[in-house]
Amino acid sequence: MIPQDVFVAQRKNDWHELDILVGQERELYSNDGPTISRMASLYRSLCSDLVRCQSARYTPDLTGYLNGIAGRAHSALYGARPIRAFGVTNLLLREFPASLRKNWRFFLLSTMLFVLPWIIGQAGTMAEPSFAKHILPAGQLEGMAQMYSKGFDEGRAAGVDAGMAGFYVMNNVGVALRCFATGITFGLGSVFFLVYNGLMIGTVTGWVWNAGYGGNILTFMCGHAPFELTAILISGAAGLRMGYALVDTKGVTRVMSLRSSAREIAALVLGAAAMLVIAAAIEGFWSPSSLPPVVKWIASGVFSLGVAAFLIFAGREKKRA
C-alpha cells in the first residue's frame, strides 16, 4: 500500500483536470467529442481511485474530495435524458387513457364528488333563490346573470377572446394542478376542490337560470365542458389516487406506496393539463363566438363523443394474433 501523500502526488493532476472539466458551468453536450471522452476516462480512473482510497484507509478528507468530484462528474456525464417528442406523445395518447381506465374507481369517485354538489347547488338555487346567497355574495351572482343576459349573438372582439383564453390557461390549469397536488393530504385537498367547484358552478348555473338566461349559459359551457370538466375530474381522480396510496399501502411504507403510483399519477396530471389547454382555446375563442346555438350543441356532442372514445379506446394493448 502506498502512503497517502505519494498516492495524492501521483494522481492529483488527473483529479484536478476532471474537477475543472466538470466544474464548467455548461452542459456536457456543449463540449467537443475528445473532451467528453477525456472526461469519461478521467471519471473511470477517479472511480477506481475512490475505491482504493476507501480500502486503503486514507483520510476522510481525501475520500470526501474524491466523492465530491465523483458525484459532480457522475451528474455531468449521466445528464438528464432529453425529452423526446415520441415519449411525450406516447405518454399523452396511450399511457394517459390507459392510466385513467386502470383508475376508473377514482374517476367515478371524483365525478360523484363534483356532480352531487353541482346538483345540490343548482337545484337548491332554482327551488329557493336565497339559497344561492349563502354560497356566493349577491353582487357576484348579479354580475353572472348580467354577463349571460345578452347571449353571444354579436360575438366579441378578437382581443378579448385572446385575453380570456390566456386567463383560462392560467386559472383553470392552475385549479386542476392544485386540485391534484393537495391530494397529498390523504386526498382531502382534492375532495375540497371538487366539492367546492361543483357547488360554485351549480349555484351560478341555477341563479342564471332563475334570471331567465339558462339557455345562454349552458350554450356557452357546452363547447368546452367536455374537455374542461373531464380534465378537472381527472386531476381530482389523480389526487384521490395519491391520497389513497398513503392510506392503503399494500404492505410497503407510505413513501414506497406513493412511488409505485407515481408514473400513473404523472400521466393523469399531464393528460389533464393538456386537455385544459385545449379547453382554454375553445372557451376563449369558440364558446363566446356568434355561431348559432345549434352549431355549438352539435360541436359539443362531437367533442363529448371524441373525448369519451379517446379515453375508452386509446392506448389499449393490441391483441396478439
Binding site: A157, G159, A162, G163, M164
Partner: peptide, 8 residues
C-alpha cells in the same frame, strides 16, 4: 385583451 392574455 391580448396583453391580459399574454400576461396570464
Amino acid at each position: 385583451g391580448v396583453s391580459t392574455g399574454i400576461m396570464a
